[in-house]
Amino acid sequence: MNNETEYEAPIAGLGLAGTLKVKNLKVCGDLKLVVSRVKGEFEARDETMEKYVHLVRAVMTQFDECHIDYIPREENVKVDALSKFVSSEVEESSGSVYFRVLKIRSIDIKFVAPIGLGGSWIDPIKAHMQTGWLPNDVMEARKLAVQALRYYLIEGILYKRSYVVPYLKCLRPDEARLALKEVHEGICGQHLGTGPLRTK
């Protein structure tokens, strides 16, 4: 395994834990250098490794409490099992283990607003929920991770959680303008006058 894989594994695991709404988490790693870098005990001198360390730390901020600790390889049986799985043929393990093949490194994922729709407050939240993307700034990353907890993503559509009414569909500015136009034109049925309420 190369060093990049040693960072991709915790990033994927942290993303899964976030999706499961885990609040407190303990991460165990058997590569002391990686654990020490993430904890801030060692400095990453290579630019690529520095980006990975920054990303791991940013993803960790989405939890109320998250610690990373070193565990010797011989004490980590699960890692041995996974390393054997990685080196085996995919067909041999099909159906027994869930896995995802990364097409691009996590540090190379850039947030881009959908073409033709323009930027919207919805885009960063969806990007985080779909791919685990977080801003480079640690405070902004934590803010986005916390904000995303108030939303659901259902079939690619973002909804705000609500405890008293059905989920609220989130609209982009152009979609909101169209919805308001349709309401005011009466597409949703007859509406009462919009003037001030009068009493006799």
Rank of each mutant, 00 (worst) to 15 (best):
V56K: 01
E155L: 08
G156Q: 04
L168E: 15
A58W: 10
I125W: 02
Q190M: 00
F111T: 11
G156P: 08
R73I: 05
H184G: 06
L158Y: 08
V79F: 13
L16C: 08
G193F: 09
A12L: 05
V183L: 03
V79L: 12
K143Y: 04
V90G: 05
K39T: 02
L117W: 14
G13E: 12
C188G: 08
L158Q: 07
N24G: 15
E74S: 11
T194A: 01
I157F: 05
I104T: 15
V27Q: 05
A148Y: 03
L33W: 07
G193E: 14
D30W: 07
D80Q: 15
S162Y: 05
H54Y: 13
K169E: 15
A141L: 02
D108R: 12
L14V: 04
L16S: 03
K200A: 09
W133A: 03
M60I: 14
L192W: 11
G119M: 04
E41D: 09
V138S: 10
R45K: 13
Q62W: 05
M60K: 07
L168H: 06
L20T: 00
T48N: 11
L168I: 07
F85I: 02
K51G: 13
L168G: 09
S93Y: 14
A17F: 15
L33A: 01
G189M: 02
K103D: 05
S162Q: 14
V138L: 13
V53C: 12
D64E: 07
A58K: 07
L192A: 01
K26S: 11
R142K: 01
A176E: 13
I107M: 03
I122N: 12
G13P: 08
A12Q: 14
H128C: 06
G189P: 13
E75P: 08
G116A: 11
V138E: 02
S93N: 13
Y167T: 00
D69K: 10
E74I: 10
L14Y: 06
L178G: 15
R172T: 14
N136K: 00
V35Q: 07
G132R: 08
D108P: 09
V38S: 04
E6P: 01
V56S: 05
P10I: 13
L33H: 02
E75N: 10
A127N: 00
I187R: 15
M49Q: 10
S93P: 09
L82P: 08
L134V: 03
A145M: 01
L153A: 05
L55S: 03
R57A: 04
E8F: 12
L153K: 09
L14F: 14
D69F: 09
A145I: 12
D123A: 06
E50R: 12
K21N: 13
R57P: 10
I71H: 06
S87T: 02
P173E: 09
E89W: 15
R142N: 11
A176W: 11
G13S: 14
M139G: 08
S120I: 10
Y70D: 07
V34R: 01
V34A: 13
R105S: 11
M129W: 03
V38W: 01
E4C: 04
N76K: 03
S162C: 04
R161N: 12
V101W: 00
L144Q: 05
W121L: 08
G118M: 07
E92T: 10
S87P: 12
E43P: 05
I104D: 01
V38H: 12
L168N: 07
P10S: 15
K39I: 01
K51P: 06
D30S: 06
